[in-house]
Nucleic acid binder design. Structure first.
Ligand code: FES
Ligand code: FES
Lengths: 144, 144
DNA sequence: TAATACTCTACTTGTACGGTAGGAATAGTA
DNA sequence: TACTATTCCTACCGTACAAGTAGAGTATTA
């Protein structure tokens, strides 16, 4: 039950883009340095997010990446789904024909419950939420 | 975010043991047939559950496995923890020193939330709960 | 003693993760 | 135009783990 680094890196990168939303494109080199992620690896993750339509890229010199939507319009479940794949704890939860006695299986219901719990959390949080929360933290730190 | 078959098999096997709690030991051969699991593989899973103290084995002819505790005393989180390992979505959730700015990281808090959501579900369900639920299902089916 | 069922260890096979590497395409800049 | 910066694309690689197979060994009962 560990998340792939893909997803963890991706969310952090997406958050950084969200924090600089409205400004000039952010370069992967910058993000990679901030987040201590391999640039080449990050390129691949961003390609996935780009294909899914969450970020836009600007090629060439002074290029970079920007969010393709408002931070408030991107849920963590979106990013998660794009990089980690759909939240599926067990095959039979999705595919009723996977197990023989699927209809009556109480174990299946447990995995469905787990799956739903995860989905609920991820769907309830947008990038904007994270930006706000991070801003709050910094402010309260300055006040100490 | 898929569960290993280890865990899924293990829970199903544990449930079957719970359903025959109080009776004579149940043989792996039987469980393997019912659940359509490789016997040899199941042996290894049960060894893990035995080491963890959830089941007891009876060797020799007419031997088999029995639950070492009451079904109501075994939570799904126990079995899960034994077979899948602890519910950890990301290293930094457990180990505060893993990431540099761990204290302020809002992403970390998300993974902690996810982790907690999963844990809550699994800790709230015991094998006895599943046995009861399964019994209810069968009864209601007969009534149709 | 023979049959049964768990025990232990080793091996195999496939797949996905987490990268690395190199170059092509594109766009700004001098 | 030449140069540089940056994304884009594809291929490759090593490791770890899951999932399962295999076989010999040990305990218990009939
Ligand atoms: S339906 Fe798949 S394990 Fe029960
Ligand atoms: S603390 Fe580990 S990703 Fe933020």
């Amino acid at each position: 039950m560990k998340l792939s680094t893909r997803t963890r890196y991706g969310v952090r990168a997406a958050l950084e883009l969200a924090e600089s939303a409205g400004r000039r494109p952010l370069q992967l080199k910058t993000i990679a340095q901030h987040q201590e992620i391999s640039l080449k690896y990050l390129e691949q993750l961003m390609a996935m997010l780009r294909s899914a339509g969450f970020v836009r890229s600007v090629r060439g010199s002074k290029g970079g990446y920007v969010l393709a939507k408002l931070p408030s319009q991107i849920k963590l479940s979106d990013v998660f789904n794009c990089l980690e794949g759909p939240v599926i704890t067990a095959e039979c939860v999705q595919n009723d024909n996977y197990c023989a006695r699927s209809a009556d299986c109480v174990v299946k219901q447990v995995w469905a419950q787990v799956q739903q719990a995860v989905t609920n959390v991820l769907e309830s949080i947008t990038l904007q939420d994270l930006v706000d929360k991070a801003k709050d933290k910094k402010t309260s730190n300055y006040q100490i």
